[in-house]
Every structure is written in structure tokens, then in C-alpha cells.
Design a protein around this nucleic acid. Structure first.
Length: 435
RNA sequence: GGUCCCGUGGUGUAGUCUGGUUUAACAUGCCACCCUGUCAAGGUGGAGAUCGCCGGUUCAAAUCCGGUCGGGACCGCCA
């Protein structure tokens, strides 16, 4: 049995100058010059340049890029190589040959295929370095999310996605057959996370949310990953909003700290936080009237155009990429949102707009059992189907509140993607159920 | 669900408005050959598309009309 060198990652090669190493990865590109050939090898850490003599080059005859290979050779300093080193005197071993031509080029500066073609071939398309980098940063954002919350005594939970009742009412749920009974895919962990405040005070969940709405927009998909936070013993929604901003700052820091080269390579414009303005729904409408001459006072909610305008306002007037809009009409918010005691027409809720798009919504919740019951009945909802939820309030619930971040939207806005499907690994939309 | 746009080699586009010198063009990819420093390599040559599908108008359709399927954008709704 021949002694096999231990694998070295491409990014670590500069620390192995003069040594014989083994690298493994995918053939990203080949540049043939007859006598001397360049092989660009890609692994999880990055790319490396290998010099292949013609005899070694022959081993790739008939094979395509993305062939998986192992290369053993000597690391040499080389100014002309991309990261200052290259591998010479290399011997190449094919680990997994590729004979089919790729559906589109992965080794060009720009990715050419339309989004539809890309997504139909996402299994290989995601290997495109910039796309892989995007999702590496997504992982960092989630790390930052966990890191911040665990550090503040939050408990991570996972609540069921198969539920017997539609979470918040409405018909926009996927129904399925559960041993002969109707069941639904959870549209939100909302009710369960509130229940869990009664156990842990502070909880969070990273999990899927399913929405059966047939929406055709660049910012909606039918399965998305929701970043849910819920906390008890709050003094008001302001406390929750403060935590949200600090949390987002840490998430961005995690991204920059863990993969600064990806941040740079993707040309990410880091968000400006500053003092995030907090305006009420009515104030937001006034701003739109003042700045754009559009009277929105009869509208029960903000339109996408309104959100874009408010994003511009926040940037120009407050130098921040964020703006809170609070106190939406009580009739418009979810049944569990607490009305403002000072003006019950409006709720103690908030939306956070990031770069002109709704990113987070949250509120202080009704924590009084009887008030909750009355609210359900006033809305014509069947209180009997909320028995388990209501029980948690019957047996003692502190003032509490929370929010949910659309994780793919956050990533979309950070990397400047034009469509949420670009920041979802395998998006589920009205027409797409595979891959 | 409403409105509007788009389907041309593997991929991305031009050509469509104003039907006919279009054996459908260009780039990239693929194949072959040349090249000792590329890094979006370069050069020469080659293969690859009955122009989404069905029907209609016409002497003639990628081009005009109708239907159909597929894709995209905006609105509604939301994260």
C-alpha cells in the first residue's frame, strides 16, 4: 500500500511552500498550452493552480470540467499565480470522471443562464463560486443569529410543521392527509413559540414556514426559512425592536468576520444601521404625502411602492438602511397583536423595512387569556381550535413579544439579488417543486 | 386572481415592428489542430437550431393572426 499524503486545502497552500502535498477537488478550468498546461482546481476553500505536464494531462482526455481529481505535487512560490503559489511536478488521479458537458459554464466571470435555466440545473449551478459564496454567508448569518440569542439566554426550539389547525386563520395553507384526517403545513411557528415563552421566557427557532398563496413576485416563495424570536417580561415593543437591531448587527458581523473574502468577492455593501428611525403607520403615510404627493390615508397597509419610498426616506433623512413602521391599524394586524392601550385603534406592532422592503414583522402580544379569547371571537375565529394555545395563557403568561425575520429576504437584500429565488437553494414556488 | 412582456444551436443574445439575397447571425461552450505563463487565455478549422407547440393567412412565415404550453415583471398578499 502506497503512503498517501494528507489532503491540504487550496487556501492553505501558501503555508506549504517547498513541500509535496495532496490536493483534492473539482476541475474548475483547464488552459492547455501544449507543452505546459494549467489546471484550476476548486475545493471548498477556494481555487489553486496546478501545472500539468502533457503526460499527466492525458489522464483528463475525454473528460469535462467538474471532474473530481486528486493531485500530488510540490508547492512553489509563483508570482504569476493567482494566490502566489502553484503546484508543480504534479501527478493527477481521477476520482470521479465527468463525461457529460455542463448545462452552462461555471468557470466564467459572469453566470449566463436565465434564472429559470439556472434553477432547473441548480444542483450543479450552485457550484458557481459566487453562488456558493452567497450561501456560505447565509450560513454565517444564521450562526450570528444563534450566537447572539444563545448568548442572551434564549433557548432554541423546534416546533411541529405538521399541524391540525391553520395557525392564524385564512385559507393560505397547504392541506394534506394525515391518517385520514386533514392536517396542514405550518405557515408560522407563531403560536408554538408564544406557548414556549411560558416555559423558557426567551426562545427562538430557525425553521421552515409554508404559505400556499399563489404569489408571483420576486420576494415571495411558498416555503421559506423563518427566523423567529419570542421573549417574555418585556417592557414594551420598543425593547423587542432594540433587540432586533442589535441582533441584525451581530448577524452581519458574523458574516464579515467568518468569510470576509466572500463579502468582498460578492461586492456586498454592508448595511448602515445608525439610529434606526421609528415612525408610526400614520406618520409613514404623512411622509409619503409630503414627499410624493400621494394620499395613502385610506389605505389599511403599506404597498411595496410605499416601502420603497420609506426606505429612500430613511436613507436620505437618517442615513440608515432600516426604518421601523409601528402602530398599524388593529383591524389589519394578527389577532394576537396587542392593541395600544393609549389608542386601541392601533396595535403595538412593527414592521422593519430594510432597503425598501419589509424584512421583519413583530409585535407585543396579548398575554391576557380573556382578552385573547374575546379577540378570537370578535374575529369570528373558532376558539375551540385554539384550546392548546389558550391554555398556555390561562396558566400564566408574562407580557411578551417577538418577531419573525424572512431569512432569504435578508440575504437577498444584502447581496443585492433581484429575486428571492437567487438566495434560496432550491426555491419552491407555484411552478417549481424540483429540484 | 388582475395587468403587461418574452420563448431562436448546450448557454446568452441579434434578426421579428417594415414577411422574400437568411445555405438563420454573433459570443460562449463542445470537438480537432497550433501555441511554455494562462488566470473571462489566444489563433485556425469543425459540428451543433426545421426559430416552444398546434393551427391559420400568403406565391412565400423565425417574422403577421388565433390558440396552447412554458418563462419573466408589476399589482394584490406577506416574511
Amino acid at each position: 500500500m502506497t503512503q498517501q499524503s494528507e489532503r491540504v486545502l487550496n487556501a492553505d497552500l501558501p503555508g506549504h511552500v517547498g513541500k509535496c502535498v495532496r490536493v483534492e477537488g473539482w476541475v474548475h478550468a483547464i488552459r492547455k498550452f501544449g507543452a505546459v498546461n494549467f489546471l484550476i482546481l476548486r475545493d471548498r476553500s477556494g481555487q489553486a493552480q496546478v501545472i500539468l505536464e502533457p503526460g499527466q494531462m492525458e489522464r483528463l482526455d475525454g473528460l469535462q470540467v467538474e471532474t473530481v481529481v486528486a493531485v500530488e505535487g510540490t508547492v512553489e512560490e509563483e508570482e504569476r499565480a493567482a494566490n502566489g503559489v502553484e503546484i508543480r511536478d504534479a501527478s493527477l488521479e481521477v476520482i470521479s470522471p465527468v463525461t457529460d458537458v455542463l448545462p452552462f459554464e461555471l468557470n466564467k466571470r459572469v453566470l449566463k443562464p436565465s434564472l429559470d435555466v439556472f434553477l432547473n440545473n441548480a444542483t450543479v449551478g450552485l457550484r458557481y463560486p459566487a453562488r456558493a459564496a452567497t450561501f456560505r454567508l447565509y450560513s454565517d448569518l444564521l450562526f450570528g443569529f444563534r450566537d447572539y440569542l444563545l448568548g442572551r439566554d434564549f433557548t432554541e426550539i423546534h416546533t411541529p410543521k405538521l399541524v391540525g389547525e391553520a395557525t392564524e386563520g385564512g385559507a393560505n395553507v397547504f392541506q394534506l392527509d394525515y391518517f385520514g384526517k386533514p392536517a396542514y403545513l405550518a405557515q408560522s411557528p407563531q403560536l408554538y413559540k408564544q406557548i414556549m415563552v411560558g416555559v423558557f421566557e426567551r426562545v427562538f427557532e430557525i425553521g421552515p414556514a409554508f404559505r400556499a398563496e399563489p404569489h408571483y413576485t420576486v420576494r415571495h416563495i411558498n416555503e421559506y426559512t423563518s427566523l423567529d424570536v419570542e421573549m417574555g417580561f418585556i417592557t414594551g415593543p420598543e425593547e423587542v425592536m432594540g433587540l432586533l437591531i442589535a441582533l441584525l448587527e451581530q448577524m452581519v458581523q458574523a458574516m464579515v468576520g467568518r468569510h470576509p473574502r466572500d463579502v468582498e468577492a460578492l461586492g456586498i455593501e454592508l448595511p448602515t444601521f445608525g439610529e434606526v428611525p421609528r415612525i408610526t403607520f400614520r406618520e409613514a403615510q404623512q411622509i409619503i404625502l409630503d414627499r410624493h404627493g400621494e394620499n395613502r390615508f385610506e389605505e389599511p397597509d403599506l404597498s411595496p411602492q410605499d416601502e420603497r419610498w420609506l426606505g429612500e426616506w430613511a436613507l436620505e433623512e437618517h442615513g440608515t438602511d432600516f426604518v421601523f413602521v409601528t402602530h398599524f391599524p388593529t383591524t389589519k394586524v394578527a389577532f394576537y397583536s396587542k392593541p395600544d392601550p393609549g389608542d386601541p385603534e392601533y396595535a403595538l406592532n412593527f414592521d422593519l423595512i430594510f432597503r425598501g422592503q419589509e424584512l421583519v414583522s413583530g409585535s407585543q402580544r396579548i398575554n391576557d387569556h380573556d382578552e385573547l379569547l374575546a379577540r378570537l371571537e370578535a374575529r369570528g375565529m373558532n376558539a375551540a381550535s385554539f384550546t392548546g394555545y389558550l391554555e398556555a395563557f390561562k396558566y400564566g403568561m408574562p407580557p411578551e413579544g417577538g418577531f419573525a425575520i424572512g431569512s432569504e429576504r435578508l440575504l437577498m437584500r444584502l447581496v443585492g439579488a433581484g429575486n428571492i429565488r437567487e438566495t434560496t437553494l432550491f426555491p419552491r414556488d407555484v411552478n417549481r417543486l424540483s429540484p
